[in-house]
Design a protein around this nucleic acid. Structure first.
Lengths: 325, 325
DNA sequence: GTGAAAGCGCTAACAG
DNA sequence: CTGTTAGCGCTTTCAC
């Protein structure tokens, strides 16, 4: 920067100003500085800038998994908006593990990010303490809580489960089973679904559980299991993800079962493929795009006001009715 | 850090040593320092550390899209290894756009990352120049080139297309069509496939193109188009991604077409679901896990030796035969 | 094994 | 509009 200044015949500070507040520099000087930058191939050092200004323009984002489309699409929307405001993203995966999350938080905080995005509302005590001490905006996504660390944007998983149960009962299904992956939020949806469905129909709700992530193959496997146990007429399966649901559809098609007559299927997530399966998949839609956008905007607003304007952003969900249920 | 030192009765430098080179500090001093850190809740400032040492422990990773599993799974493997070596990831999406990539590179370089991961072998001239000036290790993934910027890890897309064509001809298919998304690498595979298939069979190869990303719905649409044009017997479709291929499968199933008798389908990517479709999807498998790992290890090695030990890492591909072709 | 001094490359305050 | 001065919180180097 000093070198650039020398070439342009100004001091180092003026170069700094030309870059961060060009309106404070006369047009001619600005021109000379830009020429000098061009000639030297100068690349600003944001590390030094961050140290001097204690503003890093870095946002830490912690998600359970980037390979899961529900998180990656949210991240995509989030980082697009943050990028537009001049922020860059430092990413870590936590693998649904609070211990790993805590460690990642510690590491990220040492980089002095301007804000941090966390997935879910459950965090270790250590994590909460560090976050509190850091004194930076925190946005928790993908769930809502009455007591967010700072602010949260998501929806109620319990409400989603209840709504699915009501939908199924109202549609006339008499017996339900759930297929659930090892994910605490999925379990909350499942429990809400099961208790509401049982209450309204007076029947017990079956259960298939996996402690790994959902996949099409596991969905096929789950239906195979259910069929071995014998499928009562007018049955519905509530799947914790569309992957499971599509697996059920494929296996059912192969066995010649009629969907939804022989078995109705409800997915979760309304992934891109849900509209294109045969039949189309009835699913609970979360607008992940909006989720990421609202989270980003909440942070941007937060940078301007000391307190979050709104602590809880409930973006809701919607049951999308297609052929499968 | 000075505060911690005061509490521990040592100077600030000693605290620095205790953290970065504990073996240079006596055990008793170390203990007192750690106690002091505990009491103060001290969080190191990696920004200052990076400035002083010109080592950021940050890796910039630029991928076309995080919502595309082929890139996110590679990223997952890559960042896991880098994290294990004490590096964090700054992420940007380039959306298959060289201009956006160049801009992202400029921004990332200002953070002085210790290395950078780029997707593909095509980059703007400006990007190449900046990278060259930065003088940091660069790994280009997902393709191979005789003239990488620094080192590359991937496979030959042309070879993959040729191998698919040979596979299809050897399997006895007489007529081929391709379904391709707007992705330069997919186009290279398609062109290699078409030229080899045409050469060996003496037939012209049909073509359906989309300039957006592949999806199940577009795959269904593509088959509908092909059917309108009339499908010659012993036909095969070569899809640029498994998404397309699954769409074709679903539409074919719905219309009562027999796969592979009426139409054979070859996908690309061997995504998780490919083994679980009905019938299973024949696909070109790239080990994305290995891709990410090799890329990470190449960088780690690169940090120790001035020159890349190996400039080109060809991880190859494999045609996985299942029921669809 | 420990400390003092210098400085990484920038921004913030103030002065002119 | 521009320059001077003083750090930001560390690591590095050189002493002891």
């Amino acid at each position: 920067m000093a070198e650039v200044g020398r070439l342009a015949g100004v001091s180092q500070v003026t170069v700094s100003r030309a870059l961060s507040a060009p309106e404070k520099v006369s047009p001619e000087t600005l021109q000379r500085i830009h020429d000098a930058i061009e000639r030297t191939g100068y690349v600003p050092n944001a590390v030094a800038g961050a140290l001097a200004s204690s503003k890093s323009n870095l946002i830490a984002a912690l998600v359970p998994s980037v390979t899961n489309i529900v998180y990656s699409s949210m991240l995509h929307a989030f980082s697009n908006i943050m990028w537009g405001h001049g922020y860059q993203i430092m990413l870590s995966e936590t693998g649904f593990d609070l211990g790993r999350e805590e460690q990642a938080i510690a590491t990220h905080l040492s980089r002095r990010p301007d804000a941090i995005l966390l997935t879910g509302k459950h965090h270790s005590a250590g994590a909460r303490r560090m976050l509190h001490n850091a004194g930076i905006p925190v946005v928790e996504v993908w769930d809502i809580s009455d007591t967010p660390i700072d602010c949260c944007v998501g929806f109620s998983h319990a409400e989603a489960g209840l709504a699915a149960a009501d939908y199924a009962v109202d549609a006339g299904y008499l017996k339900a089973t759930t297929i659930t992956a090892g994910d605490e939020r999925a379990v909350r949806r499942r429990d809400a679904f099961a208790s509401r469905f049982a209450k309204r129909t007076g029947t017990s709700v079956g259960r298939v559980e996996y402690d790994i992530s959902a996949s099409l193959g596991l969905g096929r496997d789950a239906l195979t299991q259910l069929l071995e146990q014998g499928l009562p007429p007018r049955s519905v399966v509530f799947c914790s993800s569309d992957q499971f649901a599509q697996g059920v559809l494929i296996e059912a098609n192969k066995r010649g079962l009629k969907i939804p007559e022989d078995l109705a299927v409800i997915g979760f997530g309304d992934q891109e493929f849900a509209a294109s399966t045969e039949p189309g998949l009835t699913s609970i839609r979360i607008d992940r795009q909006v989720l990421g956008q609202v989270a980003a905007n909440a942070l941007v607003d937060r940078f301007r006001s000391a307190e979050p304007l709104q602590a809880v952003h409930d973006i809701g969900f919607e049951i999308v009715r297609r052929g499968s249920a």
